[in-house]
């Protein structure tokens, strides 16, 4: 195990958080965690198939960033996309049904785990190849600027967040898009979820400069390093970046130091990560941390949090029932959606 990077300090006490906002963040994180736990169960029970990549441990990133955005902003994800979809407002029913391959899924059962889409929620995908979502996100951000500056639509101040992992930051599209985003001052957040491992490739074995946030500086872009296990820390950085983008001041790179509590996918034997490393990060569980903070700050008590958990547990059970009872796509529609319909 290599020496862990020192996490940047954040004084949670400085966070401006009322009860409503605190519980909103908490619910989103619990929803993400429970949803993924249920996915593991359903995968092992043979209800979902293919490659399924779970998000456990990284919830503070999805919640901290997406809950700092508006519902008309854009989110672009990777193959580890269930929880981004949930944070963006796609229902647990629609995500679960997609995983079950059902017609009621957000991609009508055509996409699967790695291809969650929802136009209604401005979720751009669900991209399975490394880095390919970044240019797509850049296009959404360009579109906002185009509407504002070429078409004179002053209401076009939408921001786009592109999520991707540490492994992606060695891919050309990452650098190409950082360059263009600064060149054209696009309203975009590049959110790196540095969970230290690209399947079995340790970050320090793949990257000559392991501190990814520093890579922003050569493009003249602000880059921040943030404790990705602390939703309030992520939120604070994200809020500033969103405000900056919305004001037309350009892109921001945010490197969230985080960890996945499970293997790369449910098919990964996860043999390379040491127990000591896993234990160290497990002790930083972002959900436990937010719980402690909410209680400490008298924003919620134990009973309230338990009630939320119970409610979300039932909510996810309902999603499973919904997915199970939903129809499969009709064989008659095998060829539908290849081309746009009028």
């Amino acid at each position: 195990m290599v020496q862990e990077r020192t996490l940047p300090t954040f004084q949670a006490i400085s966070a401006k958080l009322d009860k409503q906002e605190g519980l909103r963040l908490y619910e989103d994180m619990v929803l993400g965690r429970y949803f993924e736990d249920k996915c593991a169960e359903m995968y092992y029970r043979g209800k979902m198939f293919g490659f399924v990549h779970l998000y456990n441990g990284q919830e503070a990133v999805s919640t901290g960033v997406i809950k700092s955005m508006r519902s008309d902003d854009y989110v672009c994800s990777t193959y580890r996309d269930h929880v981004h979809a949930l944070s963006a407002g796609v229902s647990a029913n629609a995500v679960m049904a997609e995983l079950f391959g059902k017609e009621t899924g957000c991609s009508k059962g055509r996409g699967g785990s790695m291809h969650m889409f929802s136009k209604e929620h401005n979720l751009l995908g669900g991209f399975a190849f490394i880095g390919e979502g970044i240019p797509v996100a850049l296009g959404a951000a360009f579109q906002s600027r185009y509407r504002r500056d070429a078409l004179g639509d002053t209401s076009a101040d939408q921001v786009t967040a592109a999520f991707f992992g540490d492994g992606t930051t060695n891919n050309g599209q990452f650098f190409e898009c950082l360059n263009m985003a600064v060149l054209w001052k696009l309203p975009i957040l590049f959110v790196v979820e540095n969970n230290k491992w690209a399947i079995g490739m340790a970050h320090e074995r793949a990257s000559s400069q392991t501190e990814i946030y520093r890579k922003a500086s050569v493009f003249g872009m602000p880059g921040y390093e943030v404790d990705g296990m602390d939703v309030l820390a992520v939120r604070e950085v994200a809020q500033a970046a969103v405000a900056r983008a919305r004001a037309g001041e350009g892109p921001t790179l945010i490197e969230c130091l985080t960890y996945r509590f499970r293997g790369h996918s449910l098919a990964d034997p996860d043999e390379l990560r040491s127990q000591a490393e896993k234990d160290e990060w497990q002790a930083r569980d972002p959900l436990v941390r937010l719980e402690a903070y909410l209680i400490e700050q008298n924003l919620a008590d134990d009973a309230e949090l338990k009630a939320i958990k119970k409610r979300l547990e039932a909510h996810i059970e309902d999603a499973v029932k919904f997915a199970e009872s939903s129809p499969e796509p009709s064989p008659d529609e095998l060829h539908r959606y290849i081309f746009a319909e009028d």
């Binding site: 854009y74 751009l124 240019p135 797509v136 360009f142 579109q143 190409e176 360059n179 263009m180």
Partner: peptide, 22 residues
Amino acid sequence: TPIAENSFTGMAVGAAMTGLRP
């Protein structure tokens, strides 16, 4: 655009998904 074919083509896809016609 800069000479970045995969990224500017992907960018056009994103712009088309969000309502422009590149």
